[in-house]
């Protein structure tokens, strides 16, 4: 068994054990008429603060607080526990108040985005690695720009050398649009690649009308098309790996604000402190 698989098993079992202990404690407290909502509330608050501190930990790399990987593992499994504690706290039902409904909605979205991000970070990177050259996300716009310039250069050279506008017309009708388009946000998930197939098909169909010299240029263009496919996949995939944090992180901080209000209201109005 690979070390990381063993680690995953162990941590999953530990998390399950913690959840079972919490569920048992909650049930005992519920039977004993103890204020389990209050206890679970405090626990949930501590868990959410701990989870949110992961973001702060990344900004404070100088602090000797374990390594980022350990924090990430703690974040993942503590997150599962937090979701379970939330269900205990809310009594497995949707809250009735407006502020609490908003709080629940934000918590659900944060938790769901976290689960989505976790899955994405496990599912997408191997596919990105397999699809072709791995690229630095910040350089992709530059690479796109360069690729577009190279395609134009190649088409121009083909027209000059072959004295034919066949490849130029093809570029005008198909290639320019294909190379300038940006991939859809969720295309790595949907596997949407119709534009690439369409261009490849058209380019293959065009070969019947090309002479040998033009065919050599067509081969170069086919290579550019394949490069663009990988570039798009890298762009869309890496963008998706960053975009889910646009939901998870901002809403986490919104959640903290709403949590503070919820705690304040509970402390002020609860009959059972």
């Amino acid at each position: 068994m690979k070390p990381f698989v063993r680690r995953r098993w162990i941590l999953s079992l530990v998390t399950l054990g913690v959840a079972l202990v919490l569920a048992g404690t909650w049930r005992l407290g519920h039977i004993a008429l103890r204020p389990v909502a209050m206890y679970s509330g405090w626990l949930l608050l501590a868990l959410v603060l701990g989870l949110a501190f992961f973001n702060a930990r990344k900004k404070l790399p100088f602090l000797p607080l374990l390594d980022a990987n350990t924090w990430l593992q703690g974040h993942i499994y503590a997150g599962w526990v937090a979701v379970f504690v939330y269900f205990l706290h809310a009594g497995f039902r949707w809250p009735d108040g407006q502020l609490e409904s908003l709080l629940a909605l934000v918590f659900y979205v944060v938790a769901a985005s976290g689960v989505f991000g976790l899955w994405l970070s496990r599912w997408l990177p191997p596919r990105l690695a397999r699809s072709g050259e791995s690229l630095v996300y910040e350089r992709i716009p530059l690479l796109r720009h360069r690729l577009l310039a190279e395609v134009k250069q190649t088409v121009r050279q083909a027209e000059t050398e072959t004295q034919s506008t066949t490849l130029g017309d093809f570029h005008l009708h198909f290639l320019s649009g294909y190379f300038s388009r940006r991939p859809g946000l969720l295309s790595p998930l949907t596997g949407e690649d119709r534009a690439h197939h369409r261009v490849s098909r058209e380019l293959t169909a065009l070969r019947r009308f090309l002479n040998d010299r033009e065919a050599a240029f067509a081969d170069q263009l086919a290579e550019f098309v394949e490069t663009k496919r990988n570039l798009d996949f890298q762009l869309a995939g890496q963008r998706l790996l960053k975009v889910w944090l646009f939901v998870h992180v901002p809403l986490t901080f919104a959640l903290l604000v709403l949590l503070a209000a919820h705690v304040w209201l509970a402390l002020n109005f609860s009959h059972r402190l």
Partner: peptide, 30 residues
């Protein structure tokens, strides 16, 4: 975006606690 979300949440909380329809917001349920 994070600051925007925090400000929005803070706005909601302030309105909920001290706004005219605050009681409807802070009321934890019917």
């Amino acid at each position: 975006l994070t600051w925007l979300a925090v400000c929005a949440a803070l706005g909601v909380v302030l309105l909920a606690l001290w706004g005219r329809s605050g009681q409807a917001w802070t009321n934890p349920g019917p």
